[in-house]
Design a binder for these strands. Structure first.
Length: 163
DNA sequence: GCCAACGTTGGC
DNA sequence: GCCAACGTTGGC
């Protein structure tokens, strides 16, 4: 049962939605979050919550697919791994500072929904991702926004295929 | 590659 | 607790 809705960003060159779908059980852990607000949102996530998987730093930026929360937050062990990219010396196994969740790919959108289209849709005005300066890589979305993005993907794909 | 908008750090 | 300096994000 879906409880809450989220949007998570990833740079596709680093990790794309297709990469997630290619994982065993289409499931992977979401490590490397080093922002308190994003971490706190992840700690609110419950199994079955739905996720818009967003590709940032690509042209054009877009929502690529739907995922779901596969496990609730648990300590991000890469935070105390000296060799890891996002090592934080203030995080320890005894006192973890950073957390991660597991997410599972559900389905790829019929067609990616570009940021420009999100911005042009007045129903999505409240989404953080369309607002200037909102860099948060994990953010809550409303159910109606989540459903609107899915609807847009359907509409866009019909337009494309009828040409 | 630029740069605006943020978040974090650390001296005071 | 203030705030300057610095680092990062991410659209363009």
């Amino acid at each position: 049962m879906v409880r809450q809705y989220w949007l998570m960003k990833s740079e596709p060159e680093a990790y794309s939605f297709d990469d997630l779908m290619a994982e065993k059980n289409r499931t992977d852990h979401w490590d490397g979050i080093r922002n308190y607000q994003a971490r706190n949102f992840m700690m609110e996530m419950r199994q079955g919550d739905a996720i818009l998987f967003y590709h940032s730093s690509t042209n054009p930026p877009h929502v690529a697919g739907i995922a779901e929360v596969a496990s609730e937050a648990y300590p991000d062990h890469t935070s105390w791994d000296r060799k890891a990219k996002y090592y934080d010396l203030k995080s320890t196994p005894e006192n973890p500072r950073w957390y991660m969740v597991d997410i599972r790919g559900v389905r790829k959108l019929e067609i990616p929904v570009p940021l420009e289209a999100l911005k042009a849709n007045p129903r999505l005005k409240g989404m953080r991702v369309v607002q200037k300066g909102q860099r948060l890589s994990v953010q809550p979305v409303l159910r109606k926004e989540f459903e609107e993005v899915q609807r847009m993907a359907k509409v866009l794909s019909k337009k494309t295929s009828s040409r």
